[in-house]
């Protein structure tokens, strides 16, 4: 697989490690009501779709940025690559 890094251009997937579903960006509030349930779901449960999947990749052997890669799990086709930072900021994180 080739990952089209937003800053570095096309990079071999071998330079990356995969963390998993991009929903891991949305860490629950540990102080909120129902936090134990929210953390169980956040840590342990996955949608695991056959098809389009957004996931976190880490450019370990490169610039060490976190990316959100949108990929088809049936064909391994990479459809979109974004900086995880941009995704998190757009979702209102890091204010």
């Amino acid at each position: 697989m080739i990952i089209h890094h937003p800053l570095l251009g096309p990079r071999d997937a071998q330079e990356f490690t995969v963390l998993g579903d991009a929903s891991l960006i949305d860490r629950p509030d540990g102080m909120a009501e129902g936090a134990p349930d929210a953390f169980d779901s956040y840590l342990h449960l996955r949608d695991n779709p056959a098809g389009t999947h957004r996931e976190l990749w880490y450019h370990e052997a490169g610039d060490r940025s976190w990316l959100v890669v949108t990929r088809d799990t049936r064909t391994h086709e990479v459809m979109q690559v974004e900086l995880a930072r941009d995704v998190a900021l757009a979702a209102g994180r890091g204010r």
Binding site: G20, D21, H44, L45, R46, D47, N48, P49, A50, T73
Partner: peptide, 16 residues
């Protein structure tokens, strides 16, 4: 597993 159990509305502690 995730595909079949999703038909019951369940999310599993599983990745394929």
């Amino acid at each position: 597993s995730s595909r079949v159990m999703a038909m019951a509305g369940l999310r599993l502690p599983v990745e394929s």
